[in-house]
Amino acid sequence: MEKPLDKCLDEISHSAGVSGVLCADSQGLCLGVRGKASASSSGTIAALAERAAMLEPGSQDPLILLEGDNSQCLVHHNNSITLAVYKSPETS
């Protein structure tokens, strides 16, 4: 049943510059993780997406980008699924 999701996560994790990918459901349960991403952060990522959507309740869910010195984390919530993609320059 989860094969399409696994395939999708594999594809994303093998993209250029991607060091990790995590997928969580609306309650923060980790649905899949690849690379450097940690399954323990799935709850935080789902909560972050939910809180960011509260900035403008009527609008479409926003894209959240967290930037550090050496890495970036993109978070997007869509259809009750939250996807986080970790990017770092050394893997590009």
Partner: peptide, 9 residues
């Protein structure tokens, strides 16, 4: 993280 961007359309 040092900076957070929240992007709408």
């Amino acid at each position: 993280f040092k900076k957070i961007s929240i992007t709408y359309s």
